[in-house]
Design a protein around this nucleic acid. Sequence first.
RNA 1: GCAUCCGUGGCGUAACGGUAAACGCAACAGACUUAAACCCUGUUUAAUUGUAGGUUCGAUUCCUACCGGGUGUACCA
Length: 834
Amino acid sequence: MDYHFIEIEKKWQARWAKDKTFKADNNSSKPKYYVLDMFPYPSGAGLHVGHPLGYIASDIMARYKRHKGFNVLHPMGYDSFGLPAEQYAIQTGQHPAVTTEQNIKRYREQLDKIGFSFDWDREVRTSDPQYYKWTQWIFIQLFNSWYNKKSDKAEKIETLISEFEKNGNANVDACCDEETKSFSAEQWKTFSEKEKSDTLMQYRIAYLGEAYVNWCPALGTVLANDEVKDGVSERGGHPVERKLMKQWSMRITAYAQRLLDGLDVIDWPESLKESQRYWIGRSEGTSLKFKIQNSKESIEVFTTRPDTIFGVSFVTLAPEHALVEKITTAEQKATVDEYVTKSKNRSERERQADVTKVSGVFTGSYVEHPFTGKQIPIWVGDYVLAGYGTGAVMAVPAHDERDFRFATHFGLTKPQVITPPSEHNFEENSWDEKEGTLINSDFLNGLNVKAAIKKAIEEIEKKNLGSGKINYRLRDAVFGRQRYWGEPIPIYYKNGIPHAIPENELPLVLPEVDKFLPTEDGEPPLARAKGWKYKNEFDYEWTTMPGWAGSSWYFLRYMDANNDKTIADKNLMDYWQNVDLYIGGSEHATGHLLYVRFWTKFLKDFGYIPVDEPAQKLINQGMIQGTSTMVHRVNNQNKIVSAGFKKNYDTTMIHVDVNMVDNNVVDVEALKKWRDDFADIEFELENGKLMCSTAVEKMSKRWYNVVTPDSICEYYGADTLRLYEMFLGPLEQSKPWNTNGITGVSGFLKKLWRLFYANNTFTVTDVEPTKAELKTLHKTIKKISEDIERFSYNTSVSNFMICVNELTEQKCNKHAIILKVLPMLNFLNSMKLI
RNA sequence: GCAUCCGUGGCGUAACGGUAAACGCAACAGACUUAAACCCUGUUUAAUUGUAGGUUCGAUUCCUACCGGGUGUACCA
């Protein structure tokens, strides 16, 4: 009997489904192990062979841990809200719920074929009202909270209100809007309801605020920073511009320090931690006020280099800075206005493209140097970002590259205040290093940079000009999307004041609309919903939540996926804790993986959950790229030549379907049928074969290089697919898919099968194993366990091959050996042979 | 520019600092077949481990610099 993988796999997959073999036990005395994959967005294209890579790796660990006596939680679900379904809906009128359902069905079929050991009873879908009910519930908790810096955690908004009633906001140390004004208890009591609401809004963790957002006109929505790549939208590649809008936002900045600190206690890839550290961008410096001449106002700047204070030659404001209008002199007004307008309208893309191009204008006004009293000009320049620090910088051209460029361009002075330890040409470059000795700097002279920074801060604080300060690059996250296919934000407006919907009235279900487009007035699609009002009276919020909302807590829901009383049962969360192994792509480094950590910490603050970090260990599986195959067509001739002859002709490369190619040999008959204009084309073959050229590109329909897991499963079987994906190379490494080598692992499985299926019959003996056989067995057990523990799946496959080669040589078909080898193989794949 | 990972036969890759290199593909030979593909058997073929230094009795492995490639990120004061 040959190795009929299709029958074997079908049989066992059916058995697993029937027996719920992989059901995770909620009442177990075993130690727990939680293996999670980043759940997919069910796109219309289905899975290609690259998608399951991480799922296979996590599945191996799940199976391995079960064998090791753990109670394993290994679930799967769908991140089923999202833009593509909505874009499709706009084009076709097909409801996103319908296409999403279809896509999920297709995904499930594909996943099932590969034989994963998921506990499907715990499936979640972010677009299911029973799921997003709890996403909305979390939103309400965020809305009803503020961040108390004194206790360093989120607290109920009621505690803030009672403090306001007692003492106003004088003693409150909170993460709140910059421009929050101080008020007394008496003043608070005189506030109108609207004023109270507006004031509290400045403190809430989920808040409605004005923010510059990435507005994408083509998609008609706001995008998060991590959804914008190179100034265009990540999905669709449309231009994105900056726009000031009233938006629901998340005060993630309150958690900046904790998000940073938490990185030290989790086992995540260093590169990923680095990107999060960079994204959070902590920098220590000082704030410093420059008094504006002939004005009561002063400009506050943030600097990390207070030591260079005597090297200041000008001050630059961001074009959006509130003071720009006030301080611009009459003579300069026209120029400044023009510049400001131009800068504001520049798209993100233009801004990024011109990083080295200097632009700016003089305002006509001056500030006084805080120590020398010297007059310093105020400029406006768009290299200063409105959203960072105070939106104003003190420019020290001799010791800051950007200031240097600006000063050089406009012919401003560049006073040097540090002597570098080595030769340096100040005509050509600034000296930005934090090394050297201070000169020309009054009380700082002779100090090294480090000491000078300390001394400068002391002096600044002494003169009451500012104080040491920590700034973060991290911005609050915009939470509203002008889109239909997302979670409705559970807010309604009464007299212009936003109110949260009572928790017991959740979920707020996504209403039906006639079209998935904005209204004529530019309102989001939800404004189209007829009669969609709270208590038939008050408008609901019309924006919906962004894609990352549902994925920011789904790891919790798997613990208790069907609970309708709470996000998940407390006892179950205590048992399952957090994810032991999380596998997914590195592209989520600064999006999903930051947000999920944020929400986790927030929920922990109130004791809703027992853990502070969502995942202990995380692995980024590498991306599997496609290998494109191209034939060479001779220009102006109806002729295709084999790759070896291309240099004899003037040719054009044409992508051909990779599924028609085997080992770079093109199936000519299939090619003729593939495109009409190839039907009677002439071929020049080498050794009777048409060879093609290859290139590594993204796996995409466009390049005809998509290989689906289904086709591999049909041809070679799921077990071969799984083994081969692992055999391809280290898990973390990106690599092109190439079906060429697959016969190796396929042959290995057949060889294994033949160990005990000789002459078409199942033959194993009870003879005592020899020493050599036992040695092979135990060597393999040791190696494989070690390999799996350190996620070195490629080498464990190769160790299995060695094992089977040796057993074949030993002609071993002994029960005692085979019975031990097979369960081991089961870590890697779904094969059951007997 | 910055961060991070990588660089070993024609290709993918492996080797607690210890015999110079495992596994698979490819190649070659044979068996099967009318023939080819698939399958099977066997063979042995192929690498001065990116470059230059250093540490060491000993380096593919550790350190430094450089060169080359992938990925992420970018005016954050």
